[in-house]
Nucleic acid binder design. Structure first.
Lengths: 339, 339
DNA sequence: TTGTAAGCGTTATCAG
DNA sequence: CTGATAACGCTTACAA
């Protein structure tokens, strides 16, 4: 009785095989590589699949073939919308190539990142994408031993684990600082997230200082601030700098939310921008452009970073490349009314 | 030779067993349920694990035990920051309970959602969280047959697949409309995303109309608009309504980005808010509060929805509950300067 | 083109 | 507390 399926639970390949009157191998072939099976049998199998409501078990498949179509991604924070674009880019490409995405959140901690990486390796993911570029020694050795391909994409790190797809935080920060100088600003302040927390902030600070040096501007510690993330934090940074004795004529916020907070605080106080002080930002092209005045910012290839990360990873996984490549994506300065 | 590991590839449990001079079952126990193994053996196993760099293979484990610690989540769009909070909430709870998260993106299409659900079921996830509440018939029957627990959380749907954790889009929209009326506004306009796209927009439209009816305000089609998402779209909606002959004295944007676009457009044109027109929004509590003037909005429990969704799902998976519960989380009206 | 047999690396089960 | 053995559901490798 072909349809006599009294078993509990999901149908297995064996059930399909029985109904289609072929072996499980033939079912497997009909599903994985239909060309290897006669059209007649292919049709019988398709029917049987529908009849029993068969959903292939990829867990068994992965174990048997030691291949997997799951990619693991670790971001510092899922909630931060900056990462959202990159995740979207990754997700788009993976879906097109029939792969799945597992996401974990490190909360900006290398220990949590290690735990996430371990969990992914336990799931035998086919590849990893890591936003951060600093990892615990154990994380590094686990990854090395496992042999899974890895893409890092938070900053263009000089010593990658494997592959990198990013832009240069250092160069972007330097370029914006120089841009402000070219516009005639003399006392350019710089606000970033704490450098201790991550390499991206450090790179941006270095870029700022490099530009000052090239410009012969001399570094004034009263013009450099580290702030926690948040809108309120940006407003506070603005006030601290304006009242701090450094007398900035422009402030470069290496963090989009900080810049937004500062811009809105100026609006609230009726301070003319750039009349009282110019404001420049890092990232978040869209929203900053709609503020009054629209804020000069760096346009970063967030979505593209995600896409390319997924692409180079898949290339490697599918054997189309073997190089430890480093992809430097372009940033752009968007000059607007705030400077 | 205990450390003579000339095999290629990752160490297996068998290798650990050999080094620790026990059977694989003992290794398995020492790892899964240390209490069942003598302290002495436990220590030997721990040593062996470290020595060979063993990373358990959960793929094999899942196949053998037919259990999995992976949860599948389908959201309409990863890039949309609204979902980001919910994802964060889910991720937090899952991590605490040692579970993994797989995410897929449906791009607001039920067919893509079905594909994502199929992929998750193929991976034999332990549970599903779906943001959307409308599904293809095939998706529904696949889920039913598989028996995996499901949480829907986009809106408080009256006919859930299984469990629901959400707030009532209908009630929230109605409450805001009534709030505006209580403030004295007579001609309250309503802008939402296209209702054809999803049930959330439909619920919000219904809520608006229900409030008008209760208030005896009569529905004026010139005061209702559907717009695509985006900042520019909000600005355009504002202009269309102000010039459209409906003469609104307040506009309720059932979409945070739309409201932001409108608010910024008013700032750009120097229109006093609420002098010329009042503005109210749906969601995105934080940023809207920093605009000038700060925008009245609904505060929705995005993060909490994520947390509770994960919690009820885990409760079910771990057998602590069996009910098809429906959790109604609270929203709040935040009254600010824009009204 | 199709089938048979032997794993893949764990855990369930039952015996000691 | 520990171990032997048989699954779990699929794919690889080889044979027909």
């Amino acid at each position: 009785m072909a349809l006599d399926d009294t078993r509990r639970g999901a149908a297995r390949m064996r059930d399909v095989a029985r109904v289609a009157q072929v072996s499980t191998m033939t079912v497997s072939r009909a599903l994985m590589d239909p060309g290897k099976v006669s059209p007649e049998v292919r049709a019988r199998v398709a029917e049987a699949v529908a009849a029993v409501g068969y959903v292939p078990n990829k867990v068994a498949g992965s174990l048997s073939s030691s291949r997997s179509k799951v990619i693991g991604l670790v971001v510092p924070s899922i909630e931060n919308s900056l990462f959202a674009s990159t995740i979207q880019g990754i997700s788009d490409v993976l879906r097109r190539h029939d792969h799945q995405l597992m996401i974990a959140d490190s909360g900006y901690s290398a220990e949590a990142e290690e735990a996430a990486i371990r969990a992914f390796l336990e799931q035998r993911v086919a590849g990893l994408i890591l936003h951060d570029t600093t990892h615990t020694p154990d994380a590094v050795s686990m990854i090395r031993r496992s042999g899974v391909p890895v893409v890092e994409n938070g900053t263009l790190t000089p010593e990658p684990l494997d592959m990198v797809v990013s832009y240069s935080n250092h160069d972007a920060s330097r370029a914006m600082t120089q841009h402000l100088a070219r516009l005639g600003y003399q006392r350019i302040a710089f606000v970033s997230l704490p450098a201790s927390a991550n390499q991206r902030s450090r790179d941006r600070q270095r870029g700022y200082k490099a530009a000052l040096e090239e410009l012969g501007h001399g570094f004034d510690p009263r013009l450099m601030l580290e702030m926690p993330p948040g809108l309120a934090s940006g407003a506070e940074a603005l006030l601290r700098l304006m009242e701090g004795g450094g007398h900035p004529d422009a402030i470069f916020f290496a963090g989009d939310v900080l810049a937004m907070g500062a811009s809105l605080e100026c609006a609230r106080r009726g301070w003319p921008v750039p009349g009282k002080v110019a404001i420049a930002a890092f990232d978040n092209f869209d929203l900053l452009g709609h503020l009054v005045p629209p804020v000069t910012t760096l346009k970063l290839p967030r979505l593209e970073i995600g896409r390319r990360s997924a692409e180079v990873l898949l290339d490697r996984i599918q054997g189309r490349s073997s190089a430890a490549i480093s992809v430097d994506l372009r940033f752009e300065i968007i000059h607007r009314g705030s400077t």
